[in-house]
């Protein structure tokens, strides 16, 4: 049975009417047309659907929106500040850290949570923070570089 749902996504409040068994992934993509959040398995096994809830990366394919009603949800569409890209977005584009781009949203959101905590993480820390996001294209090398470069820029802004 459909229920009213109040969700805050990327700073915007939405009132929706959906069934409780719809996952956050389905609601974002199919109700809110926020298709930047991807999916590779729907079972928690790839990280492509990573979004932030109150700044913490979680998997949209295993989250029930009904439980997230008072929380702040951030998707890739909410990374930029208006027309100004987040340093991660710029670095991912400029360093070719996004090849096919399918893991990119999830990667950047995991990375954002890390950079929000510390702007100059070691490679080890970056690996740990992104270990829940699979990429089949890049071999991860350029992604690591992009996170480092973005971290420096975030630090500069602070």
């Amino acid at each position: 049975m459909k229920q009213v749902l109040h969700l805050r996504v990327n700073g915007q409040a939405h009132e929706l009417y959906v069934e409780p068994h719809k996952t956050l992934l389905e609601v974002l993509r199919e109700e809110l047309d926020l298709t930047g959040t991807k999916h590779g398995c729907d079972l928690g096994e790839c990280g492509a659907c990573t979004v932030l809830v109150d700044g913490t990366p979680i998997l949209a394919c295993l989250a029930l929106p009904i439980e997230l009603q008072e929380r702040e949800i951030t998707t890739v569409e909410g990374l930029a500040h208006g027309a100004e890209l987040h340093p991660l977005q710029r670095a991912f584009a400029e360093l070719n850290a996004a090849q096919c781009g399918y893991c990119t949203s999830g990667m950047m959101l995991s990375a954002k949570a890390l950079l929000d905590r510390e702007t100059n993480p070691t490679r080890e820390k970056i690996r740990d923070a992104l270990a829940g996001n699979l990429c089949r294209c890049t071999g991860y090398e350029k992604i690591l570089e992009a996170v480092e470069v973005a971290g420096r820029e975030v630090a500069g802004r602070k």
């Binding site: 928690g44 990280g47 990573t50 990366p57 998997l59 989250a63 923070a129 270990a131 829940g132």
Partner: peptide, 9 residues
């Protein structure tokens, strides 16, 4: 356990 995302959940 698993991954950072799953440990947060």
């Amino acid at each position: 356990v698993s991954t950072p995302q799953l440990r947060a959940m």
